[in-house]
Computed example of a mutant assay.
Amino acid sequence: MDRIIRGRKAHRAGHLAEYVALIHLMLKGYRILGFRLKTPRGEIDILAQKGRRLAVVEVKSRRTPQEAYETVSATQQARLWQAGLALQAKKPQLQSFDLNIDLYILAPGHWPQHRINAFEAPPF
């Protein structure tokens, strides 16, 4: 039973972190194009655009910023790139934008961090 309760708390905390990121990105001038998007390649927490940047934003909430960064495995990074590229291929209006994978980090006792272009594109 404790495991179920912890899981629910983590799920709610994750959703709260996504909403914080969403609001912060809008305040920074980003236009939100999608939220919790399901794609055949994986889920995109936030899809945002600012200028010529198209950002696939992964939101992580952990005990420390470093822990949040380290939880995004190379496999997950590749999935994020593939999901973003698949969306661009499917939607002609997105094809002219420069795709980036950003990381939005929330950790207790730290200011929220928006790491722009946090991960290099993997060689496919």
Rank of each mutant, 00 (worst) to 15 (best):
M1N: 10
D2A: 11
I4H: 12
I5A: 12
I5M: 12
I5V: 14
R6I: 08
G7T: 13
R8S: 12
R8I: 09
R8E: 14
K9H: 08
A10H: 13
A10Q: 15
H11E: 14
H11W: 10
H11I: 01
H11G: 00
H11Q: 13
R12A: 08
A13E: 12
H15R: 14
L16P: 00
A17I: 09
E18V: 03
E18W: 02
E18L: 07
Y19G: 00
V20P: 10
V20A: 01
A21S: 04
L22R: 08
I23M: 10
L25I: 01
L25K: 10
L25N: 09
M26I: 10
L27E: 13
G29P: 14
Y30S: 01
Y30E: 04
Y30F: 14
Y30H: 09
Y30R: 10
R31I: 11
I32E: 06
L33S: 08
G34N: 03
G34K: 06
G34I: 00
F35H: 14
F35M: 10
L37K: 11
L37H: 08
R41M: 11
R41E: 15
R41D: 09
D45G: 00
D45E: 05
I46V: 15
I46P: 13
Q49W: 10
K50E: 10
K50A: 06
K50R: 15
K50W: 10
G51A: 07
R52A: 09
R53I: 08
L54M: 10
L54K: 08
V57M: 04
V57D: 05
V57T: 13
E58V: 02
E58Q: 01
V59R: 02
V59A: 01
V59L: 05
V59E: 04
R62V: 00
R63G: 08
R63L: 11
T64E: 09
T64V: 14
E67C: 00
A68I: 08
A68T: 13
A68M: 12
Y69G: 05
E70Y: 06
T71A: 07
S73N: 06
S73P: 12
A74S: 15
A74E: 15
A74G: 11
T75R: 12
T75I: 12
Q76C: 00
Q76M: 08
Q77P: 11
A78T: 13
A78W: 05
R79G: 01
L80Q: 04
W81F: 05
Q82P: 00
Q82V: 03
Q82R: 11
A83E: 00
A83R: 01
G84E: 02
G84L: 03
G84D: 04
L85T: 02
L85P: 05
A89C: 02
A89R: 11
K90L: 14
K90N: 09
K91I: 13
K91D: 12
P92A: 04
Q93V: 12
L94W: 14
S96D: 13
S96Y: 07
S96M: 04
S96E: 12
F97D: 09
N100A: 06
N100V: 01
N100W: 05
I101A: 03
I101K: 01
I105Y: 03
L106E: 11
L106R: 10
G109S: 04
H110Y: 15
H110D: 09
P112G: 02
P112E: 07
H114Q: 05
R115H: 13
I116G: 07
I116R: 15
N117F: 01
N117M: 07
N117K: 12
F119E: 05
F119L: 03
E120P: 09
E120R: 13
P122W: 03
P122R: 02
P122S: 00
F124P: 14
F124C: 00
